[in-house]
Amino acid sequence: MTADREIQDEELLGIAQDPEQALRLRRSLRTIAGADSLDPDLRDMARSVLSGRVDIKDAVQDPRYTEAVFQRLHEMRRAAEEQSYAEQQRSKAQFGDWERREQAELDRARAERDAPVHGSGRGDRHARR
């Protein structure tokens, strides 16, 4: 297995309930893997799962990774509790903007995933005759 390999959505179906959830999970892992602001253990976990070195089920049961996840959730909750009303409103607006961009990107990824593969199959052979 090379370092350049990245798992496919189907490889996350052991923990994801459907292909849509697998797509979102893989995208989230990519985000975590590339986020320099996050705990190194979280980034390591995401990179290990994405490369296929660690199965997602093993990662969610690893105490090192679960502690890093819970620590990050605690930090996020504490930061949210400390926000002023104006900051909360700005955060909501920023989240809405992010959510629209994310939805557009998910739509693009779904279309790419679900697009028919061209250049192979019976139809191409018959078209050349």
Results as ranks from 00 to 15, higher is better:
Ser48Thr: 08
Arg72Lys: 11
Ala115Pro: 13
Ala79Tyr: 10
Ala104Ile: 06
Gln21Leu: 05
Asp124His: 15
Asp97Pro: 04
Arg64Met: 02
Asp107Gln: 10
Gly96Phe: 13
Leu106Asp: 01
Glu87Leu: 05
Ile32Thr: 00
Asp9Met: 02
His126Val: 14
Gly123Trp: 04
Glu6Pro: 03
Ala22Gly: 02
Arg26Gln: 00
Arg78Gly: 08
Ser37Gln: 10
Glu6Leu: 04
Arg27Lys: 07
Gln103Arg: 14
Leu42Pro: 00
Gln8Glu: 15
Ile7Leu: 01
Ala68Tyr: 00
Tyr85Gln: 11
Phe70Ser: 08
Gln17Ser: 14
Arg53Pro: 09
Val49Arg: 02
Trp98Leu: 06
Gln88His: 10
Arg90Tyr: 08
Leu23Ile: 01
Tyr85Trp: 10
Gln83Asp: 07
Asp39His: 04
Asp58His: 07
Lys92Tyr: 11
Asp124Tyr: 15
Ser91Tyr: 09
Arg27Asn: 08
Asp114Lys: 05
Arg77Ile: 13
Gly121Lys: 00
Gln71Glu: 15
Arg5Gln: 06
Arg72Gln: 13
Gly14Leu: 03
Ile7Tyr: 00
Arg125Ile: 14
Gln103Glu: 12
Gly14Lys: 03
Glu6Met: 04
Gly52Lys: 00
Arg110Ile: 06
Asp44Met: 12
Arg72Gly: 06
Ala86Gln: 11
Ala79Ile: 08
Ser37Glu: 11
Gln83Met: 09
Asp114Cys: 06
Pro19Val: 04
Arg125Phe: 13
Gln103Cys: 11
Gly119Ser: 08
Arg64Gln: 04
Arg108Gln: 12
Asp97Ala: 15
Ser84Gln: 03
Gly119His: 06
Glu105Cys: 09
Glu10Trp: 12
Leu50Gln: 01
Leu23Arg: 01
Arg30Thr: 02
Gln71Ser: 15
Leu106Tyr: 05
Gly123Ile: 03
Arg5Lys: 06
Ala16Asn: 00
Ala104Trp: 08
Glu99Thr: 13
Leu73Pro: 00
Arg24Trp: 05
Gly123Cys: 06
